[in-house]
Amino acid sequence: MTMISLSGVNKHYDSYHALRNIDLDIEAGEFFSLLGPSGCGKTTLLRTIAGFEDIESGTLKIAGADMAEVPPNRRPTNMVFQSYAIFPHLNVAQNVAFGLRKSDLSKSEQTRVVGEALEMVGLDGFGARAANALSGGQRQRVALARALVLKPKVLLLDEPLSALDKKLREQMQLELRRLQRQVGITFILVTHDQEEALIMSDRIAVMFEGQIAQLADPQTLYRAPASRKVGEFIGTMNVMPVAQNAGNLTIAGLGQVSDPARDTVSHAGIRPETMSILFPGEPDRDRVAAAKIVDRAYYGDMTYYEVGLDGLDNTLTISMKNLMGREILEIGTPVRISWREDALVFFDQ
């Protein structure tokens, strides 16, 4: 079932075209992410769904109902704000109960559901705590409980993890995912962190300059980016120019490939982990090219090598697992690299 349906949605800020003809369907129960650099319109799109921004043209439907004349307080959506927006004059329980005033629950029932909501986000017994006595992670959980207690059809999350430190962020990513499966509500997450989007989402819409550049599940998005821009935004993508002659494609540095040529192809891309460096003693496998280590970055579990190839201006990044007994190669070492044709993606620009 389609939960949210946008068609032909446009929005301007003065002369800036923030949303350009957005067509988007989001399924019920989906964990959906809007991913893009800052200023790409992802937050505007989220605020449009919440009702804080009017749309100039196009239609927005939530659960089949047109939202044109529906103010934010009457939409079946609730939002977790980037700043969390915890009411400073209320304690934790009062914050969570804020939206229940208009429900037909009795006082004792309200206390019960607030308790349940706090338990769900792991803040059992924090009800009487003052709002400004909370840590960043706790504030976020209160914001979640406050939104989920109203049982919205859609939960909107505006960069909810960006203010947390790395460890806490990773923990909350998994917890949010678990929470979403548990409550079964449609989650829409806005983020600029591609890793976060890949980890948490069922589907991701990548946005650039007010437009959706690609809409796909995480694996498709990573393996088969629709454009060079998407490929370079998600993870690391090595991009090489492609020359065409007589129906053959020749990739700078790597050589000719048997892929059927398309007229429009201009570049080829390959991910760092799909290539490998052949250490001394290893036999050749797949396609092999000669290269030289130009730089390296040691990450503990992995080493990222920058290698230079003849006929290629830029360097290629290759990530290698630091397996037991495998040496870390010095800069300047000549090496053989191995790659496979089926790992290539082709771009038109």
């Binding site: 919440a50 939002m79 009411f87």
Partner: peptide
């Protein structure tokens, strides 16, 4: 006052008028 506080109140079902009384005025 963080503008998001007033938006959060609207989002949680209050009208602009009741938001003024429940959020803005106490702050």
């Amino acid at each position: 006052i963080d503008p998001a506080l007033e938006e959060a109140s609207l989002d949680l079902g209050e009208t602009r008028v009741s938001t003024f009384y429940r959020v803005t005025l106490p702050l």
